[in-house]
Amino acid sequence: MTEEILKIKDLHTHFFTDNGEIPAVDGVSLSIKKGEVVGIVGESGCGKSVTSLSIMQLIPSPPGKIVSGTIDFKGENLVHASNKRIKQIRGNEISMIFQEPMTSLDPLFTIGNQIREAIRIHQKVSKKEANQKSVEMLKLVGIPRAEEVMNDYPHQLSGGMRQRVMIAIAMACDPEILIADEPTTALDVTIQAQILDLMKKLNEEKETAVLLITHDLGVVAEICDRVVVMYAGQVVEEGTTREILKDPRHPYSQGLIRSLPKLHEKDQKLYSIPGTVPKPKMGMVGCRFRDRCRFVHERCYQENPELFSLENNRLSRCFLSDDAEGKVVKDAEANIGS
C-alpha cells in the first residue's frame, strides 16, 4: 500500500460575516495517496472549493479562518506552517488549477513570462534554462508552436489553450499534488475531452496525485480512482468511483446520480431531489439532508450522523448505514411494501 501524502483531519473552515459565523467546511476528513486521483463532488455551496483553498492556505482572511483541524502534508501540518514555508510549498509541491482559464492568467504578461516566473521562484535556474523548461512544459501539455506561444498574451489564446497553459504552469515544478478546481467546467465538451485526456496522461507519467473538484459525475467516472461526495459542508459518502456510481449508499448520492439525464437510456421521467440545499449555520443538530430525504425518520432530527464504515473502506454519513439501525429501517420498508 502506498503512503498517504496528504491527510486532512476534521477540518473546520468558517467565515465570519455580518450575518454571523458560517461553517462552510464543517469537519471534513480525507486523504490522498501518491499517484491517486481523488474527486470531490457536490453542488454549489457544499464547501468543495473552500476545502481546496484551505489546503493551499488561500482562504481570504478576514472573513475566512481555519478554526480547527489539521492538514497533514508529508508529516507537516500546513495549518500552522509559516507564510514563508507555505510559499515554498505552494506552486512547487502542491499546485492548483482554477475554474476560469480566462481570469486566472495575468492579461498584462506574456505566457512565457508567467511560466518562467513559477519556475524561477522555486528553482535556482538561469533565465535561459527557465525558458527552455517553459517551452518543454508547453510542448508537454500539447500546445502547437510552443516557441511562438511563449511570446503571446493570454487574450490571443482560446479557452482550451489557456487551460493548457494553466496546467503547464501548475506542472512546471513537478508537484506531488495537483488540485484542480472545476478545470473543465468553462470548456466545451470536445475541449474538455482533450484536457481530461491530458490530465490522465500527466497523472500516469509523472505519478502526480490529483485532487479533482467537480460537480460533473461524468468527469469523475472518466478519471477518478476514489470519490468523496460532499453536502452542506460535510463529507457524506466516500468510496471508489465504481462503488459510488454503481451502488451509492447515501440517499443524497443516490438522488444525485438518479437525477442525471442519461445519454444511453431510453426515456423515463427524470428523478429529482425535492427542495434545495440548506444554508450552513452554526449549531445544526441532526442530518443535514433530512428535509430532502426519502428515508427520513426520528433519529435524523435528534442526532448528528457520523461517518459509518462499510465494507471496503467505504464511508457513509447516514443512519441507514449504522448496522443496528439499518435493519430496523429495512424491516420497516419491507412492511410498507407488503
Partner: peptide, 15 residues
C-alpha cells in the same frame, strides 16, 4: 466526448 457517469461503459473516444 461526453463523459458518462458510468465506469462500465466502453469508451471508444474520438478526440
Amino acid at each position: 466526448a461526453v463523459p458518462l457517469p458510468d465506469p462500465d461503459v466502453e469508451k471508444d473516444r474520438m478526440i
